[in-house]
Design a binder for these strands. Structure first.
Lengths: 140, 140
DNA sequence: ATACTTCTTTTGAATCACTAAAAAGAACGT
DNA sequence: ACGTTCTTTTTAGTGATTCAAAAGAAGTAT
């Protein structure tokens, strides 16, 4: 059942170990998760693991391009399985909840800064800040 | 000569202390500076200060809206004096150098995500990743 | 001016997230 | 199955930042 994850790992040049599969599974079921939450999820399947191992695995998977790491200001690094599409994020300024933003209207302009001061731009990363539905309700 | 900084502080409801003025001056002369560098600059004028005090002051000034704090992935928090205009940043993926991007071509679209999943969007923060002039040369 | 209250800084300690390194253990190719 | 190589475990350690209590300034009222 995890054969697809196994082969995804192997295709990336990594060995298909229980820990890595468990981390990938955890990230398939939860989006935008920090190392601590991944660790708790993995622990239930693999009680011998440690937070350091999870950090290690997350770093490896990120380097291999199997997961994506984001670091919104004010929170620990978050990891997500959704990769390959250049999507962005909305962060709730009140509770820190995170949502995906499929794409930005007028996509191209966002990748085109006006004056880069000589920098060569490769990618653009957009973070939207606002209120999640729950905190909007709470603010009423 | 620092009367303008003094009044800026007072206008923000803060007392105009030597430490705060020194931090503001440091940030006027250096853009995108981390707490450590601010501390070194302030130390020359105010040898009795500590890195904790600088953190404290930076936090106060940020809350008061006198400086802006940015946290690019992979580096410590950076502070800048340039506020009020919603400008963005280019970060060099090789050396971490940072540049300002005055505005994005097609400005409005970047503030308009397509589907926010119910989030109310207040601001958009764009970080461009690329190579600074120096690292482009080094790559040749 | 003086005393009083409040705001700031200092000092020292603690936390959080993450990285480093060496030793033990598991995968994979032969 | 064997041995090499890759991974994980374990134990420490780091950097950046925060916390909290005590000491010190600034403003305020008398």
């Amino acid at each position: 059942m995890d054969t697809d994850l196994d082969s995804a790992l192997r295709d990336a040049g990594l060995r298909a170990t229980a820990g890595r599969v468990a981390v990938l599974e955890a990230l398939e079921s939860m989006a935008h998760t920090d190392a601590e939450r991944v660790y708790r999820a993995v622990s239930e399947v693999l009680p011998t693991t440690s937070i350091q191992s999870v950090h290690n695995i997350l770093a490896d998977l990120t380097t291999a391009g199997l997961i994506r790491r984001i670091e919104p200001a004010g929170s620990a690094a978050l990891y997500e399985r959704r990769i390959g599409d250049n999507h962005h994020h909305v962060v709730c300024t009140s509770c820190g909840a995170i949502g995906d933003v499929d794409c930005v209207v007028g996509e191209a302009p966002c990748l085109t800064p006006s004056n880069t001061g000589g920098f060569t731009v490769q990618t653009a990363e957009v973070t939207f800040w606002g209120l999640c539905p729950r905190c909007q309700d709470a603010a009423l």
